[in-house]
Design a protein around this nucleic acid. Structure first.
Lengths: 119, 119
DNA sequence: CGGTATCCCCCCGGATACTG
DNA sequence: CAGTATCCGGGGGGATACCG
């Protein structure tokens, strides 16, 4: 978002891109799931335990969508017992700056809102 | 999101911040509205016209929420006729890096998904 | 111009139970 | 462990009509 005014056409393009991004990360759980996997949780139950309040149903659904968007990979390895692991793709790493930015903004916003509530 | 693994506690904090941010910018229209105003549209109908497919109802609803979150200001100025303008707050500018990031990511993602569809 | 009021549908997301 | 099945409420969001 530049301060310089852009053409309406450019602005429309940008809106579309933003809506595309919003669509991919929308929902309460997708980003938390990515963060959890990034933090070393690779098994279904492990991820479930690491995210407060998420239900198995939602985790299952969201994992599928993330896989469709090429952000994670589901692997079934057949050792002594069957083992299923979820891993982030290299592509998912491109979300890192975005996540970082959202993390910081949320932290600050919490402060802003809390201050308002106090007044 | 660092590559270095962080403590689970830190990770939980981050998830909460992210969810706070998601909550504020969630919905199809909030960011497009901010972009539209940023691009010089300050009147209700002007904004409405600048955003494809948005309905008056949604614009009205979202403007209120944005105002509650201190991202825009609604001003009623009483000249020869009543004039209502919407402006971005200084605070809303803190979203700029996030928006920029989402714009770029969406642009690239579109390409990634399209490529997949071709295969 | 600057919105509200209704109606309505869809689907997100929670609860709970169950399967292999 | 790794999920799926079913049920269900709430609300996001579209269409349309209307108001001052």
């Amino acid at each position: 978002m530049k301060d310089k005014k852009q053409s309406d056409e450019e602005c429309l393009q940008d809106m579309r891109h933003i809506q595309d991004t919003l669509y991919v990360i929308s929902g309460k759980w997708k980003l938390p799931i990515i963060m959890s996997i990034n933090n070393g949780n690779n098994r279904f139950r492990e991820i479930a335990r690491s995210i407060p309040k998420i239900t198995l149903r939602m985790l299952s659904k969201e994992l599928k969508e993330l896989e469709m968007n090429k952000l994670i990979v589901r692997t079934v390895s057949d050792g002594s017992s069957i083992l299923i692991t979820y891993e982030l793709t290299a592509y998912s790493k491109t979300l890192a700056p975005l996540i970082e930015e959202m993390k910081n903004w949320g932290k600050n916003h919490k402060a802003v809102i809390t201050e308002r509530a106090a007044v």
